[in-house]
Design a protein around this nucleic acid. Sequence first.
DNA 1: AAATCGGGGCA
DNA 2: TGCCCAGATTT
Length: 348
Amino acid sequence: MMKMTNNLLLWYNSNARDLPWRQNPNPFYIYLSEIILQQTRIEQGLAYYHRFIERFPTITDLANAEQEEVLKLWQGLGYYSRARNLFKAAQIIRDSNRGTFPTTYKALLKLPGVGPYTAAAIASTAFGEVVPAVDGNVKRVVARFFSLTDSIDDTATIRQISTLLDQYISKKEPGNFNQAMMDLGALICKPRNPLCSECPIAEQCIAHKENRTSELPVRTKKTKVRNRFFYYFVLIQNNHTVLNERTDKDIWQGLYEFPLLESEMQLTEEQVINYLKKHYLNDQKKVSTISFTAPVKHILSHQIIMAQFIIVKSASNFVISLPTPLQDVSKYPVSRLVDRFIQSSGLF
DNA sequence: AAATCGGGGCA
DNA sequence: TGCCCAGATTT
């Protein structure tokens, strides 16, 4: 066994994080945790993991649910295509192979929402297949260990990392090796201020020897931010309000929200009210109150949404149509932005 | 290869 | 603010 491999596994033996899905090798638990943790910190995903396994003890339970319930459980976690693909994959597994989980990297890769990293993580951890799992932590550790100066966002570099790891991964404990690499990246080989003095493989780490850990890894992705202005109409009439499902290929697909006026520029209250009257009010004289909340800034990684909620109340029939009158907004999956308004407004 | 998809934590 | 997090899919 390579010295690096040995040192890493020894370190993992006494420093592994205590994570719930590490306590038993149920493939569904491991799979679920991997999907939840895509681009998500463990501290943030943990509560969702517990919520899901309590409601869906088996993958068949998940497959037999409604997508809406799955999205509701996912609410607030982001990247909602993960939830839709999770649900799809559960149904595929239920309907093929008599509900048994795929056991190989190649077969896992065919599931929607399962890419190279997730397939490798499940195959190695749950089924002992010798295949390296390369996530953000591992890319950072390897880039420093071998002092790779090509961008880790480049697909060629990711292939190179995977090929390098083929020579170091433990043939006997591939799952533990992959888990150890990720724990090392999370606990020791952190993006900023890595704890090299506590690192079990620092002795052979080129970046450490050359004192260049702060320069590595090299990244190239640049995120350009788009500004959007959302004007939500909270139409309240006879204790009903209106929610619409977002179905476009856009943010928050499959989630519900209030009727929306979207603009690339900021609009005046007058413009917004004109739109409101034209589309939703048939007799403006019967409207009792129209109030604007203060603008809410919702910052996302690739766009900034300035949102304003326009609360419209009336006892009479002022709304042209209530396509889907809903009383219990708490039953429907909504974005974090809308949820914050619902929680703080005290209207529902 | 580049764009898109959420949300939170941290320096 | 910018960067990163147990990435995958579409363009």
